[in-house]
Design a binder for these strands. Structure first.
Lengths: 227, 227
DNA sequence: CCAAAAGTGTTTTTCCTACACCCATGT
DNA sequence: ACATGGGTGTAGGAAAAACACTTTTGG
């Protein structure tokens, strides 16, 4: 395929990814260490990088998550969030970034993926520092979208492990919504939504009554009536 | 500002706009005549064009709506929809398009804007023909987003005129949702949402009892409980 | 036997739905 | 006077919210 005339191609395209997980009932986001004086010395940012000529933005997002975020993208759910095209969002040159919202269950990550490296690390969302570029904006946007989509879809199935107890699922909802729910009403609602399949196993080894395990009947993100 | 190295700038950036209005209780979209043999001879598409170096994608979208769609963009509400980056979505060269959802009240359009020209015209959404590029996809996406956002926000305020009767507002909801609503329940709901201000005027000149006029209390798009 | 989390129903209140008649005006 | 759309209330059913105790296991 031909390229358009050079003067029309003034911008480079980037993909930025806000990858969330839940660990110990708290919401974390994957960040990179950024050190790009003079504008961004010793700061942090979302995993991001340039889109290549033979890639869609989404392909680039998953590749970048692997290459820079050190996360096996085959475990990760990803969906487009928004495109950020402010002329000066990167002070060095014109960069238009397509941002992605990504989710991964903590339990599917390898111990290397779980641990922090010199380049990438997991950060509690509620304690996130100021980020480079417009990544604060992107992160807020992603967090807001996540909270809102959780309420009328089964998107949460992409951030909890394959098998879970109802209490664990409830805790995930609570982390994301930032409010506590009533146990009995929560179970009634889940029962009505009819999206969970009970397994024949129980969560054992805890110093308490063993809880029945469930999984989402469909791996797809389904639109539901409001939780 | 500097430009990035030439080889990284393989794509051009475009903005495409799905502009909707309601006319005579039916939903219309603004289309352009497209005649670009060999790939797209004698067809139609959404208003679209290239983003310029000193513009954000949104600025480009409003400019294109004016220049190509012949619509005064100051009357138009616009919000980002999604970015389409399929490698071959334009067969001539790599084009990444940021798509916008736009709304305008039919009543605020001038008679020139209301009428069709050689370049641009209004098309009933339910009778929309096959479109060039991936604009079918974009249009379906925009229509779906519009239907869904109408149900839990006051987005509809951007497609109805400043002043309207409750019956007119109900008709707008019905056009967008494709189903009829109960008059008394609709009025009760609107009353509860508490987003409308009754005016001291009535719609006169019609061969029936004059109806009280209302306007949206806030020009902002507010999140509401589900209609 | 004690600590810890699992599991389970009922009542009250709120919201949703269905439904039919009189009113004010223009012709 | 009549045709046209404007405007209003109620009753029944469904869903949401509030609320506390018994069960099962591991230590």
């Amino acid at each position: 395929m031909q390229r358009a005339p050079e003067h029309l191609r003034f911008a480079v395209l980037a993909a930025d990814v806000a990858l969330f997980t839940i660990r110990d009932k708290k919401l974390y986001v994957r960040l990179m260490r950024v050190n790009r004086p003079p504008h961004f010395p010793d700061t942090s940012g979302l995993p991001g990088g340039l889109i290549r000529e033979d890639e869609t933005a989404e392909m680039a997002a998953t590749r970048i998550l692997a290459e820079r975020g050190h996360i096996d993208a085959s475990k990760v759910y990803i969906e487009q969030l928004a495109t950020f095209s402010e002329v000066t969002r990167d002070p060095r040159s014109r960069v238009v970034a397509v941002a992605y919202l990504a989710l991964v269950p903590w339990e599917t990550l390898s111990s290397i993926e779980q641990s922090d490296s010199d380049e990438a690390f997991w950060q509690l969302v509620e304690r996130a520092p100021k980020l480079a570029y417009d990544h604060d904006h992107v992160l807020r946007n992603a967090h807001e979208r996540l909270r809102s989509r959780i309420s009328y879809s089964t998107l949460i199935c992409k951030i909890v492990p394959k098998e879970f107890t109802l209490s664990e699922l409830q805790a995930a909802y609570e982390s994301l919504r930032g409010e506590f729910l009533d146990k009995r009403n929560f179970r009634k609602k889940m029962d009505m939504l009819d999206v969970l399949t009970p397994l024949k196993k129980k969560r054992t080894g805890v110093r308490a009554r063993p809880a029945l395990l469930y999984r989402f009947t469909s791996p797809k993100v389904l639109i539901t009536p409001q939780l």
